Amino acid sequence: MNSSRIEDVMQAMVIRRHGDPDVLESADLPTPRPGFGEALIRVRAVSVNVFLDVANRAGRVPFARYDFPHVLGSEHAGELVEYGPDTEAEFPLGSRVVVHNAISCGTCKPCSDGRAESCANLELVGVTRPGAYAQFTVVPAANLRPLPQHVSFVEAAAMSVNGPLATVQLTDAGVRAGDTVLVQGAASSTGTMSAVVARALGCRVLGTTRSAAKLAELERLELFDAVVDSNEPGALDQIRERSGGGVDIVVDNVGSPELWKLTMGALAPLGRVVSSGAMFGGKVELNLAALYLASQRIIGVRSANEASRALFWQLVEDHQLRPVIDSTFPLEAVADAHRRLEAMSNVGRVVIEVAGA
């Protein structure tokens, strides 16, 4: 089914080798066509992910699989313009949609057990198949969700992965209204999104940052009940004082050994630490005696699942949630967006806007 004539060639930004941001270059590519069970999306916005995009560009994603030239870009939103042959049309053409970037096989044991987020054959848009630094993408029709009216394409791209991820992190940690949540690396896109979701779930939220300049910016967001400079010698005392003796949940996706000490020190008895990734390697010391004596837990969450996506988008509807947007760039300036993330200058999400499709 086609909504209109689609040009045979589209504009994209590609990499022909791994390297610094200068390897990103403009290219004209054949416009992809959807097959059975797939949909063609006119890309309007795509987030820049520090791992799936920036590290991927540099060749530091061990599970990436693609040939050059390759189109990066995983987390995106746009307009539904075409279904593949004999594909069931769940939404009308022209719908504003957000794309779930992970594609499960549906046949392995985790998929059969209803835990597709742990699929043994998981594919990712922009990592194991062509991505969204382009005017069009082809994705499974089952990976589409219509956008709430109040959510823009930029906001949708910014929340498409981090929102459901923050939701499953907190629900897997047994979050309850009134809990105190500490978000490490609060200025990152995942950090700000964790704060947005935690507040929607009725939690008190504390944050940390290693940047004095970002601390003031975070305080202005009014997402956090308090923000602490984790470099300060008295950081742990500040957190324990502001949390009334310790926090119920710590979201620590950083994996820094020094920050981990702060994570475990801030945790109250029966507290939970949840992590999805480790930017600084993830090798940390753990005092098992202290862990079991306080009945604390450490939880690893690989990615969101269908239940967390449904809950997150319901929260978006009910609470008019919006992400923290650091900055936006046009598609042709995607290299500058990568540089901003590499310099760790952002507070919140960096998003690419795609025009002219």
Results as ranks from 00 to 15, higher is better:
residue 6 I to A: 03
residue 16 R to Q: 02
residue 18 H to G: 01
residue 18 H to V: 05
residue 20 D to C: 09
residue 36 F to A: 04
residue 40 L to A: 08
residue 48 V to H: 05
residue 50 V to S: 08
residue 50 V to L: 12
residue 51 F to M: 05
residue 53 D to S: 09
residue 65 R to L: 14
residue 65 R to G: 11
residue 87 T to Y: 14
residue 88 E to Q: 11
residue 89 A to Q: 09
residue 90 E to C: 12
residue 100 H to E: 08
residue 103 I to G: 00
residue 104 S to R: 01
residue 106 G to A: 11
residue 109 K to Q: 08
residue 120 A to N: 14
residue 125 V to S: 03
residue 126 G to S: 04
residue 127 V to Y: 04
residue 130 P to A: 12
residue 132 A to Q: 01
residue 142 A to Y: 04
residue 143 N to Y: 06
residue 144 L to G: 07
residue 149 Q to K: 11
residue 153 F to E: 05
residue 155 E to L: 09
residue 167 T to P: 03
residue 169 Q to H: 06
residue 169 Q to L: 03
residue 171 T to A: 13
residue 174 G to N: 14
residue 181 V to N: 01
residue 185 G to R: 04
residue 190 T to Q: 13
residue 192 T to Y: 07
residue 193 M to F: 00
residue 194 S to H: 06
residue 198 A to G: 01
residue 198 A to I: 03
residue 203 C to D: 01
residue 207 G to N: 13
residue 211 S to D: 01
residue 214 K to P: 04
residue 217 E to R: 15
residue 232 E to T: 01
residue 234 G to H: 07
residue 240 R to A: 08
residue 242 R to P: 00
residue 243 S to L: 09
residue 244 G to S: 06
residue 245 G to N: 06
residue 252 D to A: 08
residue 252 D to W: 05
residue 257 P to R: 15
residue 257 P to I: 13
residue 259 L to H: 00
residue 261 K to D: 11
residue 271 G to P: 00
residue 274 V to C: 14
residue 276 S to I: 02
residue 281 G to C: 12
residue 283 K to G: 07
residue 285 E to S: 12
residue 285 E to D: 12
residue 287 N to K: 15
residue 290 A to V: 05
residue 293 L to P: 01
residue 296 Q to Y: 01
residue 297 R to K: 15
residue 301 V to R: 12
residue 310 A to G: 11
residue 311 L to N: 01
residue 312 F to M: 08
residue 314 Q to E: 15
residue 316 V to W: 05
residue 329 F to Q: 13
residue 336 D to W: 08
residue 345 S to F: 00
residue 351 V to G: 09
residue 351 V to E: 14
residue 355 A to R: 14
residue 355 A to S: 11
residue 357 A to E: 15
